[in-house]
């Protein structure tokens, strides 16, 4: 398997984290933050955006042997910046725009604008996803049953 070898090669963990963040992001919000960043790079398609399905798997009894559960929609694309840096977009749903922005961000995150881009787009996205998740968890926590025992009769 071939892997990318950019000069500013980021740590694998960091790249996985931003690709996951972009995949989960809400399209309108991502597009808004990206537009505000206002540095749309010149690029060439290596693979134009394409819709497809990914078969999601589960495990029997949550820990056992795998089985195929059902598919989800995914859009993917790949592009190269003028300096040759390659960016991949793999995002949930059917949106060429979302995949294109994700691929551009993936590429730019391997270049010197990475820290500015991180501040402008990735950090706000991350904070918002975290806050949404916490808000749901807080509502779930409010529905947790607090048992108490009624003592009846004597002894």
């Amino acid at each position: 398997m071939k892997t990318e070898n950019a000069t500013n090669e980021p740590a694998l963990g960091a790249r996985k984290a931003w690709m996951g963040l972009l995949a989960r992001s809400e399209e309108t919000r991502l597009a808004g933050l990206w537009a505000a960043f206002d540095r749309d790079p010149a690029f060439e398609w290596l693979r134009a955006p394409q819709f497809g399905g990914v078969m999601v798997r589960g495990r029997m009894g949550s820990t056992g042997a795998p089985f195929n559960l059902g598919e989800m929609t995914v859009t993917r694309c790949a592009l190269a910046l003028q300096d040759g840096t390659v960016g991949h977009g793999y995002v949930q749903g059917r949106s060429t725009q979302k995949a294109e922005i994700a691929a551009k961000i993936d590429a730019l995150m391997q270049t010197p604008v990475a820290s500015a881009l991180k501040e402008a787009v990735l950090r706000p996205l991350e904070a918002e996803q975290k806050s949404l998740k916490e808000h749901r968890a807080a509502k779930a926590a409010a529905t947790k049953v607090e048992f108490f025992t009624m003592v009846r009769g004597e002894d």
Partner: peptide, 23 residues
């Protein structure tokens, strides 16, 4: 519709232990 989608691959089995539980 799903028959028109190219299959990109199979996911890793999901870890339901890591679920953000609503219920």
């Amino acid at each position: 519709y799903r028959t028109t989608l190219p299959r990109f691959g199979y996911s890793e089995p999901v870890d339901t232990g890591a679920m953000a539980c609503d219920r």
